[in-house]
Design a protein around this nucleic acid. Structure first.
Lengths: 337, 337
DNA sequence: GCCCCTAGGTTTTACGTATAACGTCGGAGC
DNA sequence: GCTCCGACGTTATACGTAAAACCTAGGGGC
């Protein structure tokens, strides 16, 4: 109040207002004053800080402490709510520990530099990176910051901690569900994205289906967009030979495209062909019939990622174990006719 | 390379490697060396910096310069791709100007503090805030930082710059389209969110429809979620009296709910009832029939928001004018029977 | 009466950067 | 031969904070 200046008050201003030294202010506000400052003095300092609307200058604090309590979350775009959920979960846990999370959506990149560390205008304590953000990974590795990988091959991560969804189990549930319904001929609509998590889907589906005699799996590839998925599905379903009765999609968006393709060919879901997705986005219950899909808990994923990074930063061992996923059966799957 | 230490190299290390003073390094790397350092020396410095993998310590730079080149983007959650798009656009423009963007998704908040400025672990140069993030706004105002409001009442923004989508024009286009098709009885499925942008929708729709004799508008309110929208729509359509033939929804998610409600009542789209949305999310083309909706360019919105903030920061006048939007006619609208 | 300890602080320093203020040296101008 | 100036740097300083090192008075132990 007393200072008519426009600049923000510093700890020194608070000190002056409270009649103590700057060091005392730092001790009190940093909660390190027990046995070093009298309770009455501490209260005077807190009062002065409140009065002046004091907020510590984070740049100065970061410089002093040599850490920033800021981590980078590298994701492949934010075009579905999945990574938005990952961010939300990570940011929540981060906030609980006094950390901030800054985003870097990788494939399209941000800005001309395409450098995660330049575009995040912040000094970083660590990084959480999705393995789908492939083009940013080498830069990340080069920086030698504490790193947690999401959905990444545990073998290939070279020491970096990994946090994974149990995608293989999800695909297993899908396969068992469809095989149980009596399906034998599968079309796998695969995401055309180079990432471990999609390799797992393909491998697991092939394995589970192959375990049953008289089955087949055809694979079609498509970028993750509704339009591309329509085209790829139409192409695959138009091929000669016995038509697949079950369409297993690598993600819900692909499934939405498959819906349109199936309709365009004059077929009905689930009567003529069953369709499954993976993600359980809002999309899944918006389309008709509602999509049988695997629910991924994106927020939990983000939370676990952040917890793992905190563990690494504190020198603890990150919690192990994949995150369970769950098949949600809805109207898009039925026994083949 | 010479230093076996684990800490990151500083400008002083670079200086030593290049055989110059720290100041020279700063000049060269800061691109302020013309006429002060010989070209050969500058090159030696750049070479040394490259060799050591030097990156300036941003905390130190921020402290020195008293600004952080970081802005806060306050949005209401990230549950649709709309605000993800806003972020992407803002971040792109920011990066082009050497700025970073940190997110604060407001309603659910992050962390216990619910304080945008505490949870963004960063000193900020400015703020871009959506008017939908109501509960964070008072804190933002209190901080007296350069501020740009998105989708906010130009009258009520008290001097803060505003960047708005021309929502009124979008609603006008919807109304003209439906009136032109011959619709007279409207149901307005309104978002139950206190924000200027939704008031505009209601006002504009009422005005445009009222301009034609023999018309009526009934309003139903729903939170923005598919499930809530289903319930609200079923309730509204079950009321006695002549059934509305056109259903105008405040956003695509509400429209998706309306689809399900309409089907549940045994009606068909667009034969029995036309439906329109607003946003043009991926959802809009995933559902069947594809949704007639108003396309909002979220990325452009974010870009313009960031440009406006940059203008404010540089003391320039922000570019005025609302961002145009465009009706996209698809299969969910047809003349009433 | 002297020592030492504790409570309650203060003084000082360092973090890494950007830049204002200050040299220095060789040649041009006269 | 002196001045002056431009080219090419260097030295010194400040940003705001956290914390180590230091100071001082008063009281208890012996």
């Amino acid at each position: 109040m007393a200072r008519g200046s426009t600049t923000r008050p510093t700890s020194r201003d608070v000190a002056q207002a409270a009649g103590v030294s700057q060091a005392a202010v730092s001790l009190v506000l940093g909660d390190k004053w027990r046995g070093r400052v009298a309770e009455a003095t501490a209260e005077r300092v807190r009062e002065a800080a409140r009065e002046l609307g004091y907020r510590p200058n984070l740049a100065a604090r970061n410089l002093r402490l040599g850490r920033t309590r800021t981590v980078l979350l590298v994701v492949p775009a934010l075009t579905t709510e999945f990574f938005a959920g990952v961010y939300t979960g990570a940011a929540r846990v981060a906030a609980e520990h006094g950390f901030g999370v800054v985003l870097y959506p990788s494939p399209e990149g941000i800005g001309p530099a395409r450098d995660p560390f330049a575009s995040a205008q912040a000094a970083l304590d660590g990084v959480i990176a999705s393995s789908m953000a492939a083009d940013a990974l080498s830069a990340i590795r080069g920086e030698a910051l504490p790193l947690v990988m999401l959905d990444s091959d545990p073998e290939g991560s070279l020491g970096a901690a990994t946090v994974n969804l149990d995608i293989a189990d999800g695909v297993r549930q899908v396969a068992e569900h469809l095989l149980g319904l009596g399906h034998r001929r599968f079309l796998h609509l695969a995401a055309d994205v180079p990432s471990w998590t999609f390799e797992v889907r393909a491998r697991e589906l092939a394995t589970r289906v192959a375990a049953v005699p008289g089955t087949s799996v055809v694979t079609a590839r498509s970028p993750i967009s509704i339009e591309d998925a329509v085209a790829a599905t139409v192409r695959a379903l138009s091929e000669t030979g016995p038509r697949p009765t079950a369409l297993v999609c690598d993600d819900d968006k692909l499934a939405a495209g498959a819906y349109k393709a199936v309709r365009r060919l004059g077929l009905r879901i689930p009567d003529d062909v069953s369709v499954t997705g993976l993600d359980d986005l809002a999309l899944a219950t918006a389309i008709d019939p509602e999509l049988t899909t695997v629910r991924l808990d994106a927020e939990l994923f983000g939370e676990r990622g952040m917890r793992a990074l905190l563990a690494v930063l504190e020198g603890r061992e990150p919690e192990g174990g994949d995150i369970p996923v769950r098949l949600v059966v809805r109207g898009s799957t039925a026994p083949p006719r």
